[in-house]
Design a protein around this nucleic acid. Structure first.
Lengths: 99, 99
DNA sequence: TGCTTTGTTCGGGTGTTATCGAACAACAGG
DNA sequence: CCTGTTGTTCGATAACACCCGAACAAAGCA
């Protein structure tokens, strides 16, 4: 399995990031990652099937919100906090602290 | 023309607000309102038809991002900055300062 | 009463996104 | 190898959102 491509912070698009976050399932993923730091897909699957989760991770990854590191058979995801804050200062913090 | 209903800040939903902002046309409206304070629909129409604009204003209004005040035949729109900041501290500022 | 201005509402067409099962691929361990 | 685990990819369906013209509504004014 080849490593994923991750966009550079200068190419993050605000509307793309907002659209990625404007989904309850993906917001759950982001909030969970904030708590645990790093997680693979399986641990985040609630009632949703794997294929749906894989799609949501792809959207989050391609928008720049998270990075995926491959370790063996698992894909470990974590937030790109510094890079997001570099491009959109305060945005992630505001969203993570929102009710 | 009866006045519009505007949601109370406690009922603002993060995903709804993010979805409302995750559209280039609506982001333009929000940025414009930040500059001029208050504006009616017509002054914001660029190349888009009235019906499209009316739709975008409705989305922004129902999500809580702006309020619409009727004055004669004009509908004056302005950002609900304090109320948004009360519910989602820092969110609007982060978005307005983003590239 | 007409006429103009300003927006809304309606209807349909179009494109995008979410969802999910099933099949596939990559890796690790026995 | 063979098997189990972990995710991705594919294909189909359904839901949603955007877009725009046309008709409508409300208010101001001659």
């Amino acid at each position: 399995m080849a490593a994923y491509d991750h966009p550079a912070p200068e190419t993050f698009e605000l509307t793309v990031v907002l659209r990625a976050l404007a989904d309850p399932a993906r917001l759950d993923i982001v909030r969970h990652l904030e708590r645990v730091g790093e997680a693979n897909c399986a641990t985040l699957i609630g009632t949703r099937p794997k294929s749906s989760m894989s799609h949501h991770f792809q959207v989050l990854r391609e928008s720049g919100i998270l990075r995926t590191r491959i370790e063996g058979v698992q894909h470990r995801n974590s937030l790109r906090r510094e890079e997001l804050d570099e491009r959109f200062p305060g945005l992630l913090a505001a969203i993570l602290s929102a009710p």
